[in-house]
Design a protein around this nucleic acid. Structure first.
Lengths: 173, 173
DNA sequence: TTTAATTAAGTGATTACTTACTTTTTTATT
DNA sequence: AATAAAAAAGTAAGTAATCACTTAATTAAA
């Protein structure tokens, strides 16, 4: 990937994540990236291609984040590591995840199955820990962690920092 | 409010909630409402005015939804009624709430204080029920209910219907 | 010397919004 | 109740600005 192509992606991500996809003009992206507007279309065909290039990174990033959990065998550790997730987000990637969460509202990009393996892994853990309804426990915990992720991406981590300890104690992990 | 003004608001709400605010052209709203485009600007000054007119309804609607909870004195009933909330959403108002949740991603319209009285009421209930950290319990429950609300608005109520019973039992209400 | 990267200057289509005008409703006066 | 005047509701046909995207030429790299 050339230097300028990278710059374009970076500028697009920042603008899409803060102003929204439709509100971001390609001219603005070019200006921010310090390139001519035409270069965007040489490298990415059209505006949508830009968004898709950003979206193509999501599977890799999800994999990176969840790999330590998938390799964990101790049930309490699985839940513990999962609770840690949003608090360990790399701030440099806030924009990336912000965009992903925003896109959930555009049906075209919404795929609820993406996190099914995670649900399964958590369900196994709750089952092992003798929870009565492990699948539902897993689902609810995922909703809590998703909510906290969203708050962090929108308002920063400070507001929800106390809930790390609270959740760890609540689930006794 | 005249008949056509109402039609414009209704069309705008539907389009904003499904396609997004920026992706919706005023010409499209006029077409859907069956009025001339100019009438939109006569009644609402500009496109943003349309959005603000819709947003002005939110305080009233929040009040309507939460009033039964605020008048409840029995702590278990408070939590019970709160858990019921998303499952009792009026489908005719799905678009309205969908738009509200979408707008949360645009900083301009995001106000986290709006639900503080609800947090207080739930905190009181958890305190009364001898929970160790009532304020945090209230916060987490609110996140769960918000997540479930979002799923209902995006995918329909069927997917999360089993969690009604599950949550009621989890909180013993 | 061929290929790829890059740009400046366009393009037609669409955008939010305006203007000038007509129609309908409300108000005031006989 | 009838009528005239004023105000509000509504429309058709614009407008300039901006949009995503293209073209033709230039520069740099392989």
């Amino acid at each position: 990937m050339t230097d300028k192509k990278e710059k374009i992606l970076q500028a697009a991500l920042e603008l899409f994540a803060t102003e929204g996809y439709n509100a971001t003009a390609t001219s603005k992206i070019a200006k921010k990236a310090g390139v001519s507007e035409g270069l965007i279309f040489r490298h990415f065909n059209n505006k949508k291609g830009l968004l898709e290039a950003l979206n193509n990174q999501v599977e890799d990033k999800i994999k990176i984040i969840f790999t330590p959990i998938f390799f964990e065998t101790n049930s309490k550790e699985i839940i513990k590591k999962y609770i840690y997730l949003p608090f360990d987000f790399n701030p440099e990637e806030y924009n990336f995840w912000r965009l992903q969460f925003m896109l959930k509202w555009q049906n075209e990009y919404y795929n609820p199955d993406k996190l099914e393996p995670v649900l399964d892994k958590l369900t196994q853990a709750f089952l092992d820990l003798k929870y009565k309804e492990p699948q539902k426990e897993a689902f609810v915990l995922m909703q809590i962690i998703e909510s906290i992720s969203i708050i962090i991406l929108r308002e920063g981590i400070e507001v929800v920092l106390p809930y790390k300890k609270f959740l760890l104690e609540k689930y006794k992990v």
